[in-house]
Structures are given as structure tokens and as C-alpha cells.
């Protein structure tokens, strides 16, 4: 292992169209990999956990860098970098949970390089964008020689760095439905230091009417093999008047639902212990953003 260089040799292509990219992945056999910003894949190659014989860059394909509102969706091309999403968000403000996540998912340099599609393809359980996209009910669009398909993000993650995407499939874009009015969102994480991988993260999107929670979605990172949609709490909170004690109960339910492990960043016990308070903090922020008094 030598993190100063890329030891392995590989071919490199930067096709200009999806068709070309699909042809290249077909031609170059099973060791070919798509690459976007490279902030994760090149690290994995340096650490010798992967050794692609061919890299096919998706960064020159204009279709993958679309970023616009369309027919009830926000379309984010898979090769859109975080800083573009952040800039869009600071104008648009429809998806504050996503903006929160982008702001803390990496340092400025990584936001300039890393892409939303890359983050979702790497599929780390701690990926900060995932909980935020999950609570907005996002979908991912995939294309291969076999055709195009759309998957709910919730159905996309299968395990640690395992997804429903086939190796020869290109993620083209992420579609986020336009939020209903009165929805507030937020994301927060706990980490050792700034610009660090999450010990645990949480995103909430909540629709409120006065003091009542009409509906909410909650997702958490680094508490299971996949970025986790929380099931029990949204049902529990639905149509209830929000009180401090109600949120404490909801937080406890979350601690019970998650299945974290102990790893180099934290312990299972700690993750369970702080999941509830992290949820309450994030919920409060989302609730305030949804309008009205805290």
C-alpha cells in the first residue's frame, strides 16, 4: 500500500455520451469501473481494496450534469458536484435537509470534486447525503444496455457498499419530488472533528399544521448496513400535537429501531444512546423551518 501513488495500471476513458460509456463498459470486461469525482474510488485504489483495469469517467457526459426543476421534481444529474448543489440550494431553499448535509459532508475541496451520484454509488452506510435524500423520497435513475429504470432510493441500498445498481449500469440522475408546502427539513451529524465521517447522522422532513405533525420522514446514517429509513416514528407522530415528551418517546423508539455496530469511529452503545437526542435536535430544527414557533 502506498497512498502517494496509484500503483495499479489501468486504461482511462472519458466518453462524452451515455451510449459511448455503456459501450466502453461492455468492451472492457468485469474489471472496468465508472468513476466520477474520484474522491472515494481513488482512495480505495490506493488502499488496494479495489483494482479496476479500466476507469470510465462520467464527468464529460453533459446529460449527467443537469441540475434543474422540472414537472414536480428537482433533477440532479449524477455527476453534479456538491458545490453546485449547495449553490443551487442557497437560491432555491426547497430542500434544507440536503443543504445541511452537503455543507457538512466534506471539506470545500471535496465539495468541489465529489458528486452526488458517486456518493450514492459508493453507498457507505455513513454517506451524509443519503439520509437527506431519503427523507425527501428521492428516486435514482439508472441506465444500461438493457434499458432505463427508476428506483426509490429506499429500495436502492442493499448492504454495506452494496446497491441495486449493476456494475454495467450508470446512475444518470437523482429526482427529488417537489416538497409540499409547510414541510421543513434538517440534517445533522456527530463526528470526531470537522470534515469527518459521521459517527451517526439524522435527517428529518416534517409537514406541520400549527402544532400538529401532519406527517414526517426520518432517516439515519451509520446505524445499520444501509442508510436507514426509520419506520416506526413517522406513524407514531402522524397527526399528533408535538410536545417535548412526545419527541422523547419518538427518540426512544428510534434508539430501539436502529442496529448500529461498534467500529473505529464509535460504539454501538453510544450510537443507540445519542440517536434519540440527535433526532430531537434535527426534528426541532426541521419543525422550526416548517414555520411557526419552535
Amino acid at each position: 500500500m502506498n497512498t502517494r501513488i496509484l500503483k495499479a495500471e489501468f486504461d482511462y476513458f472519458a466518453p462524452a455520451s451515455i451510449g459511448e460509456a455503456l459501450a466502453l463498459i461492455a468492451q472492457n470486461g468485469p474489471t472496468a469501473r465508472f468513476i466520477a469525482g474520484g474522491t472515494d474510488l481513488l482512495v480505495q485504489m490506493k488502499l488496494e481494496t479495489v483494482a479496476p483495469g479500466c476507469l470510465i469517467s462520467l464527468m464529460k457526459i453533459s446529460e449527467l450534469s443537469v441540475l434543474k426543476r422540472e414537472k414536480g421534481f428537482l433533477r440532479i444529474g449524477a455527476a453534479v458536484t456538491w458545490d453546485r448543489i449547495l449553490a443551487f440550494g442557497s437560491e432555491d431553499r426547497s430542500y434544507p435537509a440536503l443543504d445541511d448535509a452537503v455543507r457538512c459532508l466534506g471539506k470545500v475541496q471535496v465539495r468541489r470534486m465529489g458528486t452526488i451520484g458517486g456518493n450514492l454509488c459508493t453507498a457507505s452506510p455513513a454517506a451524509d447525503s443519503a439520509p437527506a435524500l431519503l427523507v425527501y423520497d428521492s428516486r435514482v435513475r439508472l441506465v444500461s444496455a438493457r434499458g432505463r429504470r427508476t428506483l426509490l432510493l429506499d429500495k436502492y441500498f442493499l448492504g454495506v457498499q452494496q446497491t441495486a445498481r449493476a456494475a454495467d449500469e450508470i446512475m444518470t440522475e437523482i429526482r427529488i419530488p417537489a416538497p409540499r408546502p409547510d414541510v421543513g427539513g434538517a440534517f445533522q451529524k456527530l463526528a470526531r472533528v470537522g470534515a469527518d465521517i459521521s459517527k451517526i447522522s439524522c435527517a428529518v422532513a416534517v409537514e406541520r399544521k400549527g402544532r400538529v405533525c401532519v406527517s414526517c420522514r426520518v432517516a439515519m446514517g451509520a446505524v445499520a448496513p444501509v442508510p436507514l429509513m426509520i419506520r416506526g416514528v413517522p406513524e407514531f407522530l402522524q397527526e399528533k400535537t408535538v410536545t417535548a415528551s412526545l419527541l422523547v418517546t419518538a427518540g426512544r423508539m428510534i434508539s430501539d429501531e436502529i442496529r448500529p455496530i461498534t467500529d473505529v469511529r464509535s460504539t454501538a452503545e453510544y450510537r443507540k444512546q445519542v440517536a434519540g437526542v440527535l433526532f430531537r435536535d434535527v426534528f426541532q430544527k426541521a419543525w422550526t423551518r416548517a414555520g411557526g414557533e419552535p
Binding site: 502517494r4 475541496q109 468541489r112
Partner: peptide
């Protein structure tokens, strides 16, 4: 070499990026 320390930062087309992962 793993994008954690930022000491390799240069401007590419005016934007700060990590040259050790480029």
C-alpha cells in the same frame, strides 16, 4: 494521500481541489 489533510490543494479552473486524488 487519502484526501484527509488538504496539503495537496491546488486551484483547478479556479476551484480548490485535492491534487492527490485527481
Amino acid at each position: 494521500g487519502t484526501g484527509q489533510c488538504g496539503l495537496c490543494t491546488v486551484l483547478v479552473n479556479g476551484r480548490a481541489v485535492l491534487s492527490c486524488l485527481t
